[in-house]
Design a protein around this nucleic acid. Sequence first.
DNA 1: CAAATATCTCAGCGCCGATTGAGACACTCC
DNA 2: GGAGTGTCTCAATCGGCGCTGAGATATTTG
Lengths: 109, 109
Amino acid sequence: MRTELPVIPTVRANLRAPDVAEATRVAALVADRTRASILALLANGPCCVCEMAAATGERENNVSNHLAKLRAAGLVRPIRHQGDARWVYYERDEAACARAATSLRRLLG
Amino acid sequence: MRTELPVIPTVRANLRAPDVAEATRVAALVADRTRASILALLANGPCCVCEMAAATGERENNVSNHLAKLRAAGLVRPIRHQGDARWVYYERDEAACARAATSLRRLLG
DNA sequence: CAAATATCTCAGCGCCGATTGAGACACTCC
DNA sequence: GGAGTGTCTCAATCGGCGCTGAGATATTTG
């Protein structure tokens, strides 16, 4: 909690590392280029899997793998197209994304 | 840029994945528990290496390894203690941390 | 100068996670 | 029902990153 350096260097043994589990969990999700691109694409509205695959240059099953992780974290959710239910669109859960952003801001902001 | 699903599903081939290189670079740094703990500890003011090692439960050379990466990214900088220059304290570069936070907020915020 | 202290560097090992490939599943159209 | 399409799952592989250990560097002390 001290801001200045001590005159004589001393080891503060009572310092505790804060809980960063939530922040590292979110950061690990965003640290991947494909997942980050997906989140950025979905910021402009829903996309279907094949569109995200084309936009990122990744294969569709790979994009699907990453979407599963984002889904498990609650950051995105699937929407079946009601005209042709083979197509799965995804949209961001903005509340969850905002919570994720908050836990990161606590570290860097 | 569309917010609604098309009536007939179509593949938008013109969608481009935005540049997320900076965000993923920052996220990869924060995704590690030790580095995240270091950034959190330094938010309260300068710490020396051995204090951060004790607070995180990591060995000092390991903490030093992680500090080297944070240093290379410009997020922290070392301060030699002027009383005993063997002790190296570290402090955050708040401007750099703010820029890092901004690039993450562009993805999630 | 020698010993002790605090930190740094780096090669090597081990593990986690991203990508791939094959197949399964869900849905539509004929 | 069968073929075709879009997506999903998962085991296997492969590469990159964190941890470790040994040694080097820098500084202080006797």
